[in-house]
Simulated assay, not measured.
Amino acid sequence: MSIKNLEKYLPENTLPHLKQWFGDHYIHIKITRGRKSKLGDYRKLPDKSHEITINSTLQPQLFFFVLTHELAHLIAFENFGGRISPHGMEWKNTFRMMLLESISVYSEDLKPIILQFSKSPKANFMASPDLVRYFQIEDYEDESSYIEDLKIGDQFIYRKQTYIIEELRKKNYLCSNINNGKKYIFKPLARVEKIS
């Protein structure tokens, strides 16, 4: 897929950045259906070309952010060699530099969040509560809440199962499944439906 074909998924003014980052690399870009397990993925192929997959369901700014994350893998491996840690310092520094280079692409309300994130880029998008809140706020109906917005003792539905919040453990929540009595740990930004 050529860079030009990506335009419909991207915010305005991203092509100059992508052309610079793509350079002479041969990159296969695959646009996938929405995956719950990941937003994007990078692999170096046996023929020395590169493959990046990205979910088609992402908002344009998030699509560009994820593409930048995956391209940072490619550039870090090319610059520092294949033995570096996938999300080690080389990748973090590369990703940070790319985010700062392209900060003008993001909307004014998102820029401060991207700048804060760039100070210490996380491997997993879900590890950045501000980014998760920013991009998911429109994706859910009003009855959906973050578990961190509920109180100890509140009941909620998650994947058609009913739970009760028992306690906060560090940053995570220990919850009991009312149907089977088993206990589960939930991350603070798990999306759940509160039972009133």
Rank of each mutant, 00 (worst) to 15 (best):
N55K: 09
M97T: 15
K170N: 15
E166M: 15
E101D: 11
L174W: 00
P129E: 09
I195P: 02
N93W: 05
L6E: 13
G181P: 08
F186T: 01
I114M: 03
L62H: 05
I152N: 11
L15P: 10
K30A: 03
Y146I: 04
F117S: 10
K36N: 08
Q59A: 04
L110P: 15
T68E: 15
R159N: 07
S85N: 10
S37V: 04
S2E: 06
I164L: 02
T14G: 06
E7H: 14
K30G: 09
S104R: 11
I157R: 06
L67N: 09
R191E: 09
L131R: 01
A72M: 03
N124Y: 15
E138K: 12
K36H: 08
Y42T: 02
T32M: 11
K4V: 14
D149W: 08
L10P: 06
I114Y: 02
S144M: 11
K194H: 04
M1R: 05
R83D: 05
Q136I: 03
F22C: 03
Y158R: 07
Y134S: 11
I52E: 10
Y9P: 14
Y140P: 01
E138Y: 12
F125N: 04
A123R: 12
G153R: 05
F77M: 03
I157D: 12
H73G: 06
I29Q: 13
K122F: 15
K183P: 09
L168E: 06
F135K: 05
H69S: 08
I165K: 01
Q61K: 10
I52H: 14
R96I: 00
V132L: 07
H50E: 04
Y163L: 01
I31L: 15
Y106R: 11
